[in-house]
């Protein structure tokens, strides 16, 4: 075994792989949230739909997204493997346990499994449909002078070869964009109570997972310092366990209550 595989397969190395992939996924969550906040823009989905095209066509973003899918799968299955291994380290269970640790920290594998199921459903709902299903198209006309945007749903059966058709009419001073209406797909999907509720549960799981996970990742990398650790813990709890899941959870809630 080379020194590198020896390092990465040691108990500490295995954890470092969990830590690094986990931190990457935390970073992804921030970017994903910033992009998705465009769902709250009252522009008929113009910003969100064109953003969706950029994210699925711009090559560097595509490379990072496939890396991201790989890290999600790696983090999930490596985590399950570690959990199985760790359980073997106690072959006879205790009769009575009063553990002095947080519930999150003891249930990372359970929370992670919930999140894996959530991610599969989530990607099936939107990612798969966006890539593989004939979603309706929408045409946006932007007045270049005022910045006003008018949207118009394309007739049923309309399709185009590229993800985004764009042309500028300099006589009329307008820019026209035709894209798949993912915004509409999202808003219709979240009108379903069960799906919205499932998404809320998913976000609760993210919150609890990161309540322990974020700060734990730094500890695994050996970062524990009286100056920085309180800051890392605060960011883990407030930003990653509370604000980010709450902001994501606001999306299904927004569309669910908008229908009434």
């Amino acid at each position: 075994m080379s020194w590198l595989t020896q390092t990465l397969t040691s108990s500490i190395g295995k954890k470092v792989l969990m830590s690094l992939t986990g931190l990457f996924l935390c970073l992804f969550l921030v970017v994903h949230l910033i992009g998705n906040l465009q769902l709250f823009k009252d522009d008929g989905g113009y910003a969100f739909n064109t953003y969706a095209v950029t994210m699925t066509t711009f090559t560097p973003v595509k490379i990072i997204s496939y890396l991201n899918y790989f890290f999600i799968l790696f983090h999930a299955f490596w985590g399950i493997y570690l959990e199985v291994r760790n359980r073997k380290a106690r072959n006879v269970k205790y009769n009575l346990i009063r553990n002095q640790s947080t519930w999150s920290s003891r249930n990372m594998a359970l929370l992670g499994t919930i999140l894996l199921v959530y991610i599969v459903v989530h990607m099936g709902d939107f990612w798969y449909k966006f890539h593989n299903e004939p979603l309706p198209y929408v045409q946006y006309t932007e007045m270049l002078s005022t910045g006003e945007v008018f949207s118009q749903v394309m007739p049923a059966g309309y399709t185009q070869d590229v993800k985004q058709v764009e042309f500028v009419n300099s006589d009329e001073g307008t820019r026209t964009v035709i894209v798949k209406d993912l915004y509409q797909t999202v808003s219709v999907a979240f009108q379903n109570f069960l799906l919205s509720f499932f998404y809320l549960l998913g976000m609760v799981a993210v919150g609890f997972h990161l309540y322990h996970g974020f700060q734990s990742a730094f500890q695994t990398l050996g970062i524990n310092h009286p100056k920085y650790s309180p800051f890392i813990k605060a960011v883990g709890i407030w930003v990653f366990a509370f604000i980010i899941p709450a902001a994501f959870a606001a999306m299904p809630l927004y569309f669910y209550f908008k229908q009434f």
Partner: peptide, 8 residues
């Protein structure tokens, strides 16, 4: 087993 930083 390996450490999962529970702090117990």
């Amino acid at each position: 087993g390996s450490c999962t930083n529970t702090g117990a």
